[in-house]
């Protein structure tokens, strides 16, 4: 099973506002790539382009799966989920008035996922025991950290091969950020997930990333391995502000 995501020369925006300018990025199988950048630089837009929720005006997004190439630019979000792509959205975006369990079931909405519903639900409860305890509770009534766990579990309910994680650290206490990142790391190692993670927190992100790309004003200004990132002067000036 070979999987890779290839983004080439992507332009995207909202109306007259251009959020991405010629973004290129590639992710190989079982690789974890961190998309680094502060607010408003286009991280979430890039994620939404991959999910088919924002349509790019130029460029290509190609998912190679077992020797077959899929042009995600032309596919609906439903079809992209069917291919094994799932997203943990920024700010969690749970269904607050539905129960924890119903939130999880919605992660398995696609027909193919429903067939393995029991197995995937059991897996999620095993990975996140707190969710099992609280499965009849309304999602909106849980703490921020628990909600983030639920958002991750919901994305895993479709048994994805490529997981997009958009700013898992938003609105969480530092200790919870660390827990969340550790959990993502465990999950990806155990299940061989390929991960694209957008994150502002440089030091947390490089704990799990193999490579990173810095995005500033919708353009990738630097890409490299984690050690290259740490040493790079450009990174320090652009991103760490030193």
């Amino acid at each position: 099973m070979a999987l890779s995501l290839e983004i080439r020369g992507l332009d995207a925006g909202y109306g007259a506002v251009r959020a991405l300018h010629g973004v290129s990025l590639s992710i190989g199988e079982k690789e974890t790539v961190a998309l680094l950048g502060t607010n408003g630089n286009g991280k979430s837009t890039l994620m939404k382009c991959v999910m088919g929720m924002v349509r790019p005006s130029r460029g290509d997004i190609v998912l190679n799966l077992d020797g077959q190439a899929f042009d995600l630019k032309t596919l609906s979000t439903e079809a992209i989920v069917d291919l094994g792509v799932a997203m943990v959205p920024e700010g969690r975006r749970l269904f607050p008035r539905l129960t924890v369990e119903e939130n999880l079931l919605l992660g398995a909405y696609r027909r193919a996922s429903r067939r393995q519903l029991g197995r995937n639900l059991e897996f999620c409860y095993e990975a996140f025991p707190v969710l099992k305890e609280r499965r009849r509770q309304l999602a909106g009534s849980m703490s921020g950290g628990q909600q983030q766990m639920l958002a991750i579990a919901r994305a895993l309910m479709s048994a994805p091969k490529l997981l997009l994680v958009d700013e898992p650290s938003v609105g969480l206490a530092p200790i919870l950020v660390s827990h969340t990142i550790t959990k993502i790391k465990e999950l990806k190692e155990e299940y061989g997930l390929t991960v694209l993670m957008a994150e502002q927190n440089f030091h947390q992100a490089i704990r799990i990333a193999d490579r990173g790309s810095i995005i500033v004003h919708g353009e990738i200004v630097f890409s490299g391995t984690v050690s290259e990132l740490e040493k790079n002067e450009l990174v320090k000036s652009y991103y760490l502000g030193t």
């Binding site: 929720m53 609906s76 975006r93 749970l94 008035r97 539905l98 119903e102 919605l106």
Partner: peptide, 19 residues
């Protein structure tokens, strides 16, 4: 189930693959 999801958050529902 899909309708209840989009009542709570249409964007999140779409992201889950709810048509």
């Amino acid at each position: 189930r899909g309708l209840r999801a989009l009542r709570d958050s249409e964007e999140a529902a779409e992201g889950c693959g709810v048509p």
